[in-house]
Amino acid sequence: MSGTCETIMASNQTLFSYVLRLADDHLILSQRLGEWCGEAPTLEEDLALANIALDLIGQARALYAYAGQVEGKGRNEDQLAFMRYERDYQNLLITEQPNGDFAHTIVRQFFISAYMDPFWRRMESSKDEMLAAIAAKASKEVTYHLRHTSEWVIRLGDGTRESHERMVEALDDLMMFTGELFEMDAVAQEMLQSGVGVDASDLKAEWQHTVQTILQEATLELPKAGHMQTGGRTGRHSEHLGHILSELQYMQRSFPGLTW
């Protein structure tokens, strides 16, 4: 009896971890996109980026709320989002990379959307009903993100010489963070085996196909995959995350335990 109980406990811990990291991806990326508000190249694009950021915040909230429920210690979405230390965040490194110029933001969003699009579609058939429901909503949203960023990749790649060069630089800068997307650590493996999670390593071919098709139309090339950075899932981040958190957590840290 106690053995079964421990297995459930262990898998709850794994599920918590799996949901939490997904939530972190969306929170950190939305925090980055939110920085664009009022700063985009056109008013129309200002609204478009905010729409994407709002989709991501919505996904993050649903995931944090569920993570809190799975954990069962009474932590709500805000306690999970705001009250952890830097090494406890498990987001992918690419999500925390700086906005840079518009080319960097578009490439970052394009890389991630081309990954999340098939990811959420597969998650729709998860055995975990809550994750399947979150995926059903998110997959529609991310399909538009992918469409929108693809259009920009094409225009910037095949626009002016300057825009082309900026895109080449953005691709070069961000390529090394794409390997992490497809990693399967113990948590991901366990979730896959129990029919809850997605086999991320299996998304690589589709991702490459999507990305290369669009880049070709944009007269761009995917840079050669050199050494791929990794560490987000174990809390080893780039220096950028600390600064993101210092803004994100400012109110909750300055006035602990209050309701806003």
Partner: peptide, 9 residues
Amino acid sequence: DGAWVREAA
């Protein structure tokens, strides 16, 4: 900062 984007489009 946005001028090059509009030009490219």
